[in-house]
Amino acid sequence: MIDIKKEIERDRRAFIKKVLGGSIAGSLLLVLPAGAVDIAEQIPGMREEKAVFTAKRFAFVVDITACIGCGSCCVADKAEYNVPDGHYRTWVERYIIDDHDNVFVDCPDGGLHGYIRAREGLPHPTRDTFFVPKLCNMCEKPSCVQVCPVGATYQTKDGFVLVDKTRCVGCSYCIQACPYSVRFISPATHTAEKCTWCYHRVRKGLLPACVEVCPVHARKFGDLNDKNSEVYKILHEPHVISVLKPDMGNKPALHYVGLRREVV
């Protein structure tokens, strides 16, 4: 009888110990910073102690010969930023050229659901079709920064164009000034919003969300001052490369491989 009592007593102790241990471990997991979960550095050199972010010159390259219009980038972007419906930080356009040289472009829901069905109702047989992902051009001479009356839209020393929503007055002047229509007024904050090339991720050595999820590697990102980076190599090799609306003089840091003359 006494033995049985001892046994129960021991089990109870063990039980309480286990509950306590579990609680402590669980709490620790909650309070430990997410950084403790080790994600390998995706942009070389960003986490070095001596890394100077202002010495970087980032570029984005979109290979439209590779894009399959799956919409993964749009999904990742929407998830990363909780982008309100009907507004777009990034989108994927579908271009169709028929054998009469007519150009048809569409982009239902910003390409968020992917182009799983062929476009119907076109008058002539299709000659060619391709997809063009769009996002902030991170211009070297950004019109939005030029016109913002309060400096809420600004350019960082490493070339990113960002919006400080605590300063934005919501005048929409930047939206009028952007030749690429990448900006919108957030219905939640009443301030201007746009793609940031995932600045918060890049500063931690991670690739922009859309680049990371692209299954065909159509979106590429890197430092042009790093001669080993893929973007450096692409921009210094004899590819067909262009930027959007070069006549605007904004000098975009977003480059397109295989850009077609039909693309605006």
Binding site: P149, V150, C171, S172, Y173, T189, H190, T191
Partner: peptide, 24 residues
């Protein structure tokens, strides 16, 4: 029109010199 009219005076107090609107 402004999304944040309470910040309107910032155009006056902390203007961006390259913005046409800041001169208003």
């Amino acid at each position: 029109h402004l999304g944040h009219p309470e910040r309107a005076l910032n155009m006056f107090l902390t203007p961006n010199p390259t913005s046409a609107m800041a001169g208003f």
